[in-house]
Structure formats: C-alpha cells, structure tokens
Design a protein around this nucleic acid. Sequence first.
DNA 1: CAGAATCCATCAAGATACTG
DNA 2: CAGTATCTTGATGGATTCTG
Lengths: 127, 127
Amino acid sequence: MQPSNETDPSDPRQECLALGHVIDRIGDKWTVMVVGHLSTNSLRFNALMRAIPGISHRMLTLTLRGLQRDGLVKRTVFPTVPPRVDYELTKLGQSLTEPLSILAGWASREKPSIESAQREYDAENAA
Amino acid sequence: MQPSNETDPSDPRQECLALGHVIDRIGDKWTVMVVGHLSTNSLRFNALMRAIPGISHRMLTLTLRGLQRDGLVKRTVFPTVPPRVDYELTKLGQSLTEPLSILAGWASREKPSIESAQREYDAENAA
DNA sequence: CAGAATCCATCAAGATACTG
DNA sequence: CAGTATCTTGATGGATTCTG
C-alpha cells in the first residue's frame, strides 16, 4: 500500500535509525550503569561513584547531567552542611529500566556464547 | 546463604555491570543500525552502506568485523567476479534483535518526551 | 565489489587541582 | 560533599588511496 515513499515511519528499518540516534545518548557504558544503579533506589553522588567501579569523577558528572537533560534523572539538592544531592530516576527514567533489564538479561545469558565466539575468532586469526 | 561476598551474580547491580561491559561492544550507533538492518534479511556490503546513511566505508568494515568476532554476524564470500560478500545474523545475532527492538520501541515512543525535556533543560540553562 | 592501509583532525576521557 | 575548571593524551572516526 505504501507508495514509493522512502521514509515510511512504520518501516522497522526507520525505527532502527531512530534507535541509533537514541543509542548515541543512552547507549554508553556509564549511562547504562548509572540507570541500572538508580533503578532500585535513589543515590547520592559519592554513593554512585563507589557503586560504579572505574568511573571517574568527571564522567559521573557528565553522565548525570546528560540524563538530567534527557529528563531521565531528577536531581535534588538538600541545603544542608555539608551539601547533599540525591539522584533518582524520573518516571521516564523508570520506564527505561525494563527495556534495559531485558537487554541486560540477554547480555548475561549470552555472554558465554559471545566470549567463546571471540576466542574462536581470535584463534583463527592469530595464526 | 551468600556470605559477605560482594559479587553476588543474582544482584541486579551486578547484572547491570555485566551489561555495561557488553554495551561497550554492541551499544554503539553503527552496531545497532547494522543489526537492525540485518534483522530482516542478509545484505551485501554496499547494500548496507546505502541502507545506513552517514556510515563510512571504514566504520562499516570495523563494525562488521566486531559483530563477526562476537559471533553475531556471519560473513559469506561468493567466489564470483566481481566478488560478493553476504552478511547475515547468526542465531545468536537473531536473538539480539528482540531486546533491541524492545529498546527501539521505547526509543520511538519516548522520543517526544525526551526532546521536550531537553528543550526545557536548555531553556532553563540558557538564561 | 569488498576490502586493507595510511594519514590526520577531533574529541572524549582520565588525572589533577580548586571551590562553595 | 558535590561539584567545576583546566590540561593532556590517546583513541576514534573520516577522507583518501590502493588492491585482488
């Protein structure tokens, strides 16, 4: 039924182009980890730092700012001394946790297969 | 039953750390797009080039090699003249399309919300 | 056609030091 | 505690050229 229109939004390929765009935002390591850790409860800045091994001060800041900008994370400042800042997922952020956990499930399920494929590939390519 | 072991694999936080690792491989724009386009049928190199706007020759090569190494894509060479190479998802690769399409669904559903949040954030931060 | 190889600009990210 | 600012480097990715 579709005429010769190349930009059919119901085309799964178009959808995957849209995904590519969003993946660029939320698809990096740190973003995924932050969302994962905030999915259960709100956390303070340093608590996130401790929870996510290897993340630098700077990257956590930038990641949180990005998530905040996308409306996925809410930042709450308590005017105490010393200052305290809580980060929690917004409703929109919560809605992301399900797709991500599905992906996480796939990742942990298929991790062995992937790693064995890598070893095989590397072995073939080593000689 | 778990002792004071901090690396409990059933902990959702541990799972999200595993995700972070895998996301680093499959979570980039081009990889997602390639998998998306291969989800319906196998494609040749240049067909993928044309299907994915903006991808460079080099990035397509590297992306495909990575997917191949992970065992997600199978490369088939036809010894014809001119040479012809088909790329198709393996079974493992097929199994990834469902989680990805769920994520893609979320992305296209929530895209308006995200963009409006961004506009709001930028407006607040512009002044 | 399907790649490999080289060159190069840019940018992302870590380390470090400073502030309210 | 929760950031911001600056610096420096190393990886990334694009353009281009060459080959079987």
